[in-house]
Structures are given as C-alpha cells and as structure tokens.
C-alpha cells in the first residue's frame, strides 16, 4: 500500500519573471516500509520534494495523499497536527533546541500532542534507550557530539511513532564514523518496518536504501530499486547535457547558455524536458558530483 502518493505535484516560487519551477508535475508512490534515497544536484528540487512530503510546504498544483488522506489542501493547524502524528524529521544540523536538555528535546513532539509531562519524559527516556543515549538524558545539546545530536534527533523523530521518517542529509555534517552509526540506526528503524525518505549527496549512503530517486530540474529523472547493502549502480548512468561546448561558453559567456536553455513555460503546457533529454548523446558530461561544490 502506498503510504505516500504524489499526483502531478508542482511547486512554484516567486512571481512573474522571477518565478522558479522547483517541482514539475512529479508523480511518486512510496510504499510502506521503503527506504528511499533521493539524490540530485543542488537546485534539483530534492529538498522541495522532501518538504512537501513532510507537510512543511504545500504544493502549488497537484495532490498529495498521505496514508490514504488528501493532505495537500489542509489548513496550517491541521497540517501541523498531521505532521506531528505522521512524520518524524531529522535535519542536517541544528536539530535540537539548545535551551532544552536531551530528554525534553525528545519529548517535544509529545508536548504538542498534549501528553502529560511525566508520561512524555518516560516515553522519551525509553526512546533514548533505543538510540543508546539514555545516559545523556540530562545533557544539553552543546555537550553532545554531532553524531549524538543526530541520534537524539532520530529518537525525537520516532517518539510519536510516525508513519514516515524524513531525513534531510542526516550525515551532512558528520565524519564517516558518526555517519555510519547514524545510518545504521536509520537502517535499523527501516528494518523494523518504518518508511524512511532521505535526501543525500553521498552515493555511499544509497547502500542503506532499497530505492533510489534521482532528481534534476524539479523532475524525477531516475527511479530504481536497489539492493540493500550495495551502492546503487544506476546513479552512474544518470547524466544531463547541453548542446554547446565549453569553448563556446568561454567565447561568448553566459549569453550562449541563456540562448540554448529555453525558459520553461510555467503554464499547464509544460515541456516534457527531462527523460528524453537525458538519453541524448552527450557532448559534455557533468555528474552530480559537480554540484557538491
């Protein structure tokens, strides 16, 4: 059963000439229990997609069905409650509230749910046990390492027993050792039946996922099932091209590129750009790695 279902979801930012198309009629089904990794260069719309899935943002067009419920047109209060009950977030950094101790941070979603203080601290304590940080309950975030902070964030994301866990580059600020611990924890959560959607720049992390989405210019240009424990092979084949050469660019400057990249039409007649183009013979190769700069 699809826990997440996006139907032709678009997201536009800005007005008039400054309008940007961040998501371009994206259709996506995510089944319960999947671990989906989303990759793509900066500006490709991964985070926008994640925000819409996480109910932090509303699509401009299209429908979003979360757990059989249409949620794209909810009022902000209902959206907040849906977010609280269905979704757990793990961000790249500064995940925790500095003024609260670890226990209170983990218990925060329960506070908004109206759980009584004693009970929510008990639940939070149990959850910290699960991520192996029970002995740090009364520490403040500034006393924790980056890896520990992410584990606390994962504990907080799990406290409401959410339908999906959303992780936006959860290891972005961590060294490889801590990254591994955090990813193992996410993997364990996945194995216990949770749905995880994660944005990452690190292809190594795709080995924890069983599905990989590759995004470019607001569209999903690659969608492959991957094997757990193996780095996805398909990502190496995803390229995008433009017709001109580097020499031409150097000679004529940005104007050349501007001429060659036609402005996107933002009306309903949108050009079906990505999939066809990606298969064209390439004159210049740019892998996703470039965008890491």
């Amino acid at each position: 059963m699809a826990v997440i279902e996006l139907q032709e979801v678009s997201k536009l930012y800005g007005f008039g000439d400054a309008t940007t198309l961040a998501l371009d009629e994206v259709d996506l089904h995510i089944e319960t229990g999947e671990f989906v990794a989303i990759m793509g260069p900066s500006g490709s719309g991964k985070t926008t997609l994640l925000n819409i899935i996480g109910l932090l943002d509303k699509p401009t067009h299209g429908e979003y069905v979360l757990d059989t419920r249409y949620v794209s047109r909810l009022r902000s209060g209902q959206q907040a409650r849906a977010r609280r009950d269905k979704i757990g977030f793990v961000f790249q950094s500064a995940n925790l509230l500095p003024r609260l101790n670890v226990l209170e941070n983990v218990a925060l979603p329960l506070a908004y749910k109206g759980t009584l203080p004693v009970r929510r601290l008990k639940l939070a304590s149990d959850m910290l046990e699960r991520v192996g940080l029970r002995d740090k309950e009364y520490f403040y975030p500034k006393h924790l390492s980056g890896g520990q902070i992410q584990r606390v964030a994962i504990a907080r994301a799990l406290i409401n027993n959410p339908t999906i866990i959303i992780a936006d580059e959860p290891t972005g600020n961590l060294d490889s050792g801590n990254s591994k611990i955090v990813m193992e924890l996410l993997s364990e959560i996945h194995r216990s039946g949770n749905t995880v959607v994660m944005v990452t720049h690190n292809p190594e992390l795709t080995r924890y996922a069983n599905r990989l989405l590759y995004m470019h210019d607001g569209t999903i240009v690659g969608d492959e099932k991957t094997k757990l424990g193996e780095v996805a092979k398909g990502i190496k084949n995803v390229y995008f091209t433009d017709e001109s050469s580097v020499e031409e660019h150097l000679a004529h400057g940005v104007a050349t590129i501007m001429r060659e990249v036609p402005p996107k039409e933002l009306s309903s007649k949108k050009p079906k750009l990505p999939k066809a183009q990606t298969k064209k013979p390439r004159t210049r190769k740019r892998s996703y790695k470039r965008s890491k700069k």
Partner: peptide, 16 residues
Amino acid sequence: TREIGIRKAVGATNRQ
C-alpha cells in the same frame, strides 16, 4: 527563528 522552525516541524501549530 530556527527554533520556531524546529518546533513547527515536530508538530507545533501556529496557535501553540
């Protein structure tokens, strides 16, 4: 502001 963002992400409503 960041704190408000986190609070909202974990389910705080505008009213809260």
